[in-house]
Design a protein around this nucleic acid. Structure first.
Lengths: 197, 197
DNA sequence: CATGACTGTCAGTGCTGACTGTCAATCGTC
DNA sequence: GACGATTGACAGTCAGCACTGACAGTCATG
């Protein structure tokens, strides 16, 4: 099964590239280091991808992460604002954490690769729309007060984005002395109170 | 006044370094480019700083931004939760925006320079303490409900940090279709409601 | 005018890093 | 065993970049 192995090696290289570039930046990592981290030779790297740029682009293409958030609102929400917001928050952080390296790269070197920013922006756009629809529905049901739901959704998302950024480096957990799970629970309590009629 | 000019040239170089490194990263900028952006020769750069590393470190030393937040709570707050939170939020964003380039560098290349992280972390630590004290005082006065003030402060700060990160690149203002000022006003309204007795 | 502080030009060094070419080895398939 | 596909070891090219040395020019000060 040579085809299987090729894919495995390509994947190894792309994964190594993502790991290292996320930590040290595109210019901070050499092709030798990437190949070594993948357990392969530098020659193989260039045979598969032709260039360092193309390696990163291919990695970004393969490990796209948009559209994951879709599933979130397919069932799972039960109409209790506190529980729903909690569930949304946790899912958000799961997805963000799973893709934290790509996100870090996209933020740090978005200007290097065309299309990076666009793809990483699909994701929040989508979540915003879903949140707005949720708030609108809950307002109809009399479960939340009337607000500018777009603004509310944006503030809610920015809070969790800030939390994500803060916890993206594991060593930084001590910065604010509060665990992510604590922060999620407490903030959702506050938001529930702010929105409850 | 040769001394004056020396300082001007050193400042020019440090400022150029900050500008360029914030945009393209430490390894994405050459000493030639920095010197050219400062309108000086590369030779002068090395005469003053000896190395590229030392240039960045010197720049970071000079343009430290911690302790700015102190002034915020020295007077200016009047006991009206909505107005106070509004004022705090705006001051926070002013300070963060003014130092956005240093912050970007510190986030992207914190591992390169020892002491970067520590200094950029003084700042939020300080704000957190001040916020906790403020909430405690307001609770005594019966202006806000009892919460875990530390958690509340952290969530509040993370929300604004997320907003700051989102608006740090001017081109990104369209991502969420909401201006920073709108976001500040709306979010503070929500928080005031969440905390009001 | 002499001096000292600062700067630019130019040429150059040494290293690193992206990328290539050649050849041999491995390994699964027919 | 022949073959194709994949890979590694090795040597090497070439450009870019951090950094240096030598020399001359400018300019304010005494």
């Amino acid at each position: 099964m040579e085809n299987r192995d090729v894919m495995n090696n390509k994947d190894k290289l792309m994964q190594a590239a993502i790991d290292l570039i996320a930590e040290r930046g595109y210019h901070g990592v050499t092709t030798q280091e990437i190949a070594a981290a993948a357990g392969l030779s530098e020659k193989t790297l260039f045979r598969h991808f032709g260039s360092k740029q193309n390696l990163l682009e291919s990695a970004f293409d393969r490990y796209h992460y948009a559209a994951e958030m879709n599933d979130l609102f397919q069932g799972g929400l039960n109409g209790d604002v506190y529980e729903d917001l909690l569930r949304i928050s946790r899912t958000y952080h799961e997805i963000m954490f799973r893709n934290r390296k790509m996100i870090k790269i996209s933020i740090a070197e978005g200007h290097h690769l065309p299309g990076f920013r666009e793809r990483t922006h699909q994701h929040p756009q989508q979540l915003k729309k879903l949140l707005i629809d949720y708030f609108t529905e809950m307002e109809k049901r009399g479960k939340v007060i009337h607000t500018d739901h777009e603004q509310t959704a944006v503030s809610f998302m920015l809070m969790h984005f800030g939390a994500f950024m803060n916890y993206i480096d594991a060593t930084d957990t001590t910065v604010l002395n509060v665990s992510l799970e604590q922060m999620i629970q407490h903030s959702v309590q506050l938001w529930t109170r702010a929105l409850s009629p």
